[in-house]
């Protein structure tokens, strides 16, 4: 008795350690079962929402018959190009705006408005400019992903604690050293918040525009399955997009952990 008490006090219980994961999984399974029940007893129309069991069975068909790997590759390619470009362009623009108070005040509201604008709806304009090609999807996603990174870079650099800058000044650091060794690392957590927001926008835009112009990867697959009125297949494809986005964000988290081990 005493032994088991000492064991339980020295080691956290299994449920304490994995409680959140188990609870989340049980909630998902519970919601699926509730939907299954509601559809089967006719409360929810099965021609609007198919039974979850049909969706699960449709996964195999969608993966095997619909060239899911090729389509995922196409979507991932567009996403990665747009996401990386928005970081590569957005961070320097944010840093430049941080340096100039005049330009920052002149541009910040416009960039904020750009972040809130439904750029997806401007697809006809981009189609005219770039044609019905992946280029259109990449450029639109890039523009949609740019604003959060610019805004969060400005916020992160401006939020650097004055005492850290004073440490740099007391060590006679050049402005370049001050930026790379103090301002930038200090701003990195906030910049990563911007990147997470940006990449969400990029993902939405890529899949959304693929759907709207019926071109490319997973968005086009959802469009095709919906037009065939293959509802279980459509929902299976939507869940597949969710899985891809989860993978995408786990990857980002790993990169963040590598760059900021002290989180």
């Amino acid at each position: 008795m005493a032994k088991s008490a000492s064991q339980s006090s020295s080691q956290p219980s299994f449920f304490f350690r994995y409680g959140p994961e188990i609870t989340g999984l049980l909630a998902l399974v519970g919601a699926t079962l509730v939907f299954e029940l509601l559809v089967r007893i006719g409360v929810v129309n099965r021609f609007v929402i198919p039974p979850p069991s049909d969706v699960i069975l449709a996964f195999e068909r969608v993966v095997v018959e619909e060239d899911i790997l090729g389509r995922t590759g196409a979507t991932a390619f567009e996403m990665i190009i747009a996401a990386v470009a928005s970081v590569v362009v957005g961070v320097p623009i944010g840093a430049a705006l941080h340096r100039s108070a005049l330009w920052r005040r002149a541009m910040e509201d416009w960039v904020g408005a750009m972040a809130a604008a439904p750029i997806v709806l401007a697809f006809p304009l981009f189609l005219v400019l770039f044609g019905r090609s992946p280029k259109t999807i990449i450029v639109m996603a890039f523009f949609h992903g740019l604003a959060p990174i610019i805004l969060k870079t400005i916020e992160g650099l401006s939020g650097t604690r004055k005492v850290l800058i004073n440490v740099g000044r007391s060590l006679n650091m050049t402005s370049s050293q001050l930026f790379w060794k103090i301002l930038f690392p200090s701003a990195l957590p906030v910049i990563f918040t911007g990147i997470r927001l940006s990449w969400t926008f990029v993902l939405i835009t890529v899949v959304g525009v693929e759907y709207l112009i019926n071109l490319g990867g997973l968005g086009q697959l959802i469009n095709e399955l919906a037009e065939r009125y293959d509802l279980p297949g459509t929902y299976a494809a939507i869940f597949f997009v969710i899985l891809v986005s989860v993978f995408f964000f786990i990857l980002l988290e790993r990169v963040e952990l590598w760059l900021r081990p002290a989180r």
């Binding site: 850290l164 004073n166 007391s170 006679n172 690392p185 990195l188 900021r260 002290a262």
Partner: peptide, 21 residues
């Protein structure tokens, strides 16, 4: 009239760099 290498400053506020060990 500017920071001098002969003077080492320790500040009142906590001033370690959180991203460095």
């Amino acid at each position: 009239s500017a920071p001098h290498p002969a003077v080492g400053m320790v500040f009142q506020e906590e001033s370690t760099f959180p991203w460095r060990n």
